[in-house]
Design a protein around this nucleic acid. Structure first.
Length: 259
DNA sequence: ATGGCCAATTTTATTGGA
């Protein structure tokens, strides 16, 4: 089983890249964030014509999440079910075979002391409650743009950003608490000391050229899937292209056949 | 020079991203 995640920064602008990448990499599930379009504008027809199933939850201009898979999607859930968190399109889940895929675009948080930062922490608190209610011995993949870097390895200048939004204790401790329920950071498990492995580079200041990035996108796996994790890598190639997203694809592979 | 880009909408500016 292959799982992948990608913050597209507009699915309409990135559709060709996404479909090409799907053909090349054959994931069982691609989790997309920042689709940035309303459901009526989502390119579902083109995705289905390419041979994939999809589910999506969007809104005008901002946010938006989607699942794309060669497998049929079952039990699609759109939104957290917590009304105060569902004013923005940031959560979608579905089963493909015997695996539950959860795709989240966690709020960026803007600045400490703002309502947006409080919403980010509340979203993380919700995810703790959500996974607490599941059996983590089931096969679960939690993908997305989490907007949190966990360690000094995960941001190009830790001393510059330490304590700031995206790299502070309030966020990191909450994500670690969720992981303690039985979720493994698949990339870090297989690359325990690889530095400069990022999934996001700001468009500004030549960040990509300078490799000034952040690792803020994740594929988390529950116990039975973490036990059969066989590969995980960042694919930097799409970030080098013309008109790229500011994020790139993360992909993890498991010795498990969807049933 | 403490900022440079990009996408969508409110479009020839503004907002948000992280």
């Amino acid at each position: 089983m292959i799982a992948a995640t990608f913050n597209a920064n507009s699915i309409r602008n990135r559709l060709d890249v996404i479909l090409g990448w799907m053909t090349e990499n054959r994931p069982d599930m691609l989790c997309i964030q920042e689709t940035k379009c309303q459901d009526k504008d989502f390119p579902a027809d083109a995705i289905r014509e390419a041979g994939y199933h999809c589910a999506f939850l969007g809104q005008k201009t901002f946010n938006g999440v989607a699942l794309i898979s060669p497998h049929e999607l079952e039990g699609v859930v759109k939104g957290t079910g917590d009304g105060s968190l569902d004013t923005e399109a940031r959560f979608i889940s579905a089963r493909a075979g015997d695996v539950l895929f959860v795709n989240t675009y966690i709020p960026q948080g803007q600045m400490k002391g703002t309502p947006k930062f409080e919403t980010k922490l509340r979203f993380l608190d919700f995810m703790y409650e959500y996974f607490s209610s599941l059996d983590m011995d089931d096969k679960i993949i939690w993908c997305g743009d989490f907007n949190i870097a966990l360690t000094d390895m995960d941001v190009y200048d830790p001393d510059l950003y330490r304590g700031g939004v995206g790299f502070c204790e309030e966020e990191q401790s909450r994500l670690e608490k969720i992981m303690s329920l039985g979720l493994t950071d698949t990339f870090r498990k297989l690359n325990p000391s690889e530095e400069k492995a990022y999934t996001f580079w700001d468009y500004r200041m030549n960040c990509f050229r300078a490799n000034h990035g952040w690792r803020i996108d994740y594929i988390m796996a529950s116990r039975p899937l973490a036990a059969c994790l066989s590969a995980s890598r960042v694919d930097k190639e799409p970030r080098k292209r013309e008109k790229p997203s500011d994020h790139t694809f993360l992909i993890s592979e498991f010795d498990h056949k969807l049933q």
